[in-house]
């Protein structure tokens, strides 16, 4: 009996030592999480209720920043509209484009490695550099895109100088960075068991039917992932919009995205409290949209081997 107690005590001490060691091993990560993620997030939340300009200590304002945002900041609603427009078009277009390219790359053909590299390569180009290249290409007078439109007899447009076309131009620009999504789709496609596709073919399914009834359902977890990441990144579009439209969102505030509005409120107007309130609102919107997507997932996402999930 006593020997059992001694053994238990030793085991308990060993477990505690192990727990301490484990804690020590994760401590650097834990500390950086607290210092560089939790602290800024909580500070942002606190600052959103204050008037803060970096130099002077924060002054408590309560909800005034939020009231100002909704009632006395005309650029707020403009930037909300611009970001929503961008997200609603750029995300589906990006998903469709990435899936299409992944399907092409999944085909068994010569030089596939070269194609894959070419499509993944733009991800490595710094966004400022690629945006500058696109600004030249979108030039209404001497740009490549208008030259191509002219060559096929289509009317030319003002692109980044025309408020009607500036956002569509930014959406087209966003397709440049599809490479990462393409690679994820490609991994998903290669994970689909060939046996299922063969069985469908034997049952008489054509290429479209195999895609519609086998590939697409099995790819839905990957679509969910890319959708969530796409939505988050579309709400966070900043560099391209800033390079194209500056802090004023030219032309006519058509490229004033929400992140640019946050940036200019913080670093042009020195209204850090107001900017923090805007950031909190952005966080909540992205959180709600992401939760809605996740809540809808059981309806359309199919996980292999999960019972009752084959709707």
């Amino acid at each position: 009996m006593a020997a059992t107690r001694v053994r238990q005590a030793r085991r308990g001490a060993a477990r505690r030592r192990e727990a301490r060691a484990g804690l020590l091993f994760v401590l650097p990560w834990l500390l950086s999480l607290l210092l560089f993620t939790a602290y800024p997030v909580l500070t942002t939340l606190y600052l959103s209720f204050t008037d803060y300009n970096i130099v002077q200590p924060p002054r408590w304002l309560g909800l005034q920043n939020y009231r100002t945002m909704f009632t006395a900041d005309p650029a707020f609603w403009t930037s909300v509209g611009n970001s929503a427009y961008y997200a609603l078009l750029a995300v589906p277009l990006g998903l469709a484009g990435a899936l299409g390219l992944a399907l092409l790359l999944n085909a068994r053909t010569q030089g596939l490695g070269v194609y894959r590299t070419l499509i993944a390569l733009p991800v490595l180009v710094p966004p400022v550099a690629s945006t500058m290249v696109f600004i030249v290409m979108f030039d209404p007078d001497n740009g490549l895109i208008n030259a191509l439109l002219q060559a096929v007899g289509l009317p030319t447009v003002g692109w980044l100088t025309d408020p009607t076309w500036a956002k569509p131009a930014l959406i087209l620009l966003s397709l440049w960075g599809l490479g990462a999504s393409v690679l994820i789709f490609l991994a998903g496609l290669q994970d689909i068991p060939q046996a299922l596709l063969d069985a469908a073919a034997i049952d008489g399914a054509g290429a479209w039917q195999r895609f519609r009834h086998v590939t697409l359902p099995l790819l839905t977890p990957v679509i969910l992932f890319n959708l969530v990441m796409g939505v988050i990144s579309s709400f966070h579009i900043f560099t391209q919009a800033l390079v194209v439209g500056g802090t004023t969102g030219k032309p006519l505030e058509s490229t004033l995205m929400f992140m640019v509005h946050i940036y200019r409120t913080a670093f042009r107007y020195f209204a850090m409290g107001q900017a923090a309130a805007l950031a909190v609102v952005l966080f909540l919107v992205v959180l709600v949209v992401t939760l809605v997507i996740f809540r809808s997932a059981p309806v359309w996402v199919h996980y292999e081997g999960r019972e009752g999930n084959n709707r």
Binding site: Q56, T68, A72, A271
Partner: peptide, 14 residues
């Protein structure tokens, strides 16, 4: 006018 006065008042209050 409304936006500028609101921003000004906030800065002056500080």
């Amino acid at each position: 006018q409304k936006a500028c006065q609101s921003a000004l008042d906030k800065v002056l209050q500080a």
